[in-house]
């Protein structure tokens, strides 16, 4: 069965205060990195998923995001899929 690699990116929704991002933003400013603003910290989760095709793989990852990987009250998610082997390999 084809194997896919999924990279899931989870971000705080716009308007949700990100105190970590703010702290990093201040640290950047104190290091004289000018012109950098709006630092937002999220997370990237990588996983592999076996699935007959890409559509079903995407469906599975989406369910995992909704149920566990992200909290839809404060977070948004998106993901990228790439096939790791050839079908039938």
């Amino acid at each position: 069965m084809p194997l896919y690699n999924a990279q899931v990116f989870i971000q705080l929704k716009d308007g949700i205060l990100d105190p970590q991002g703010k702290a990093v933003e201040h640290a950047l400013a104190s290091l004289k990195f000018t012109g950098m603003s709006d630092v937002r910290i999220g997370k990237m989760i990588e996983l592999q998923v076996e699935s007959p095709n890409e559509t079903q793989a995407a469906g599975n990852v989406e369910q995992a995001c909704e149920k566990l990987l992200a909290n839809p009250i404060i977070e948004t998610y998106e993901f990228k899929l790439s096939q790791l082997n050839e079908a039938g390999a």
Binding site: I16, L17, P19, Q20, A23, N71, I73, I74
Partner: peptide, 16 residues
């Protein structure tokens, strides 16, 4: 909150 028995979520403290 995560179980949905109560609404909302507990975020990181604002002062970290």
């Amino acid at each position: 909150c995560e179980a949905g028995l109560l609404p909302g979520v507990l975020r990181k403290n604002r002062n970290l």
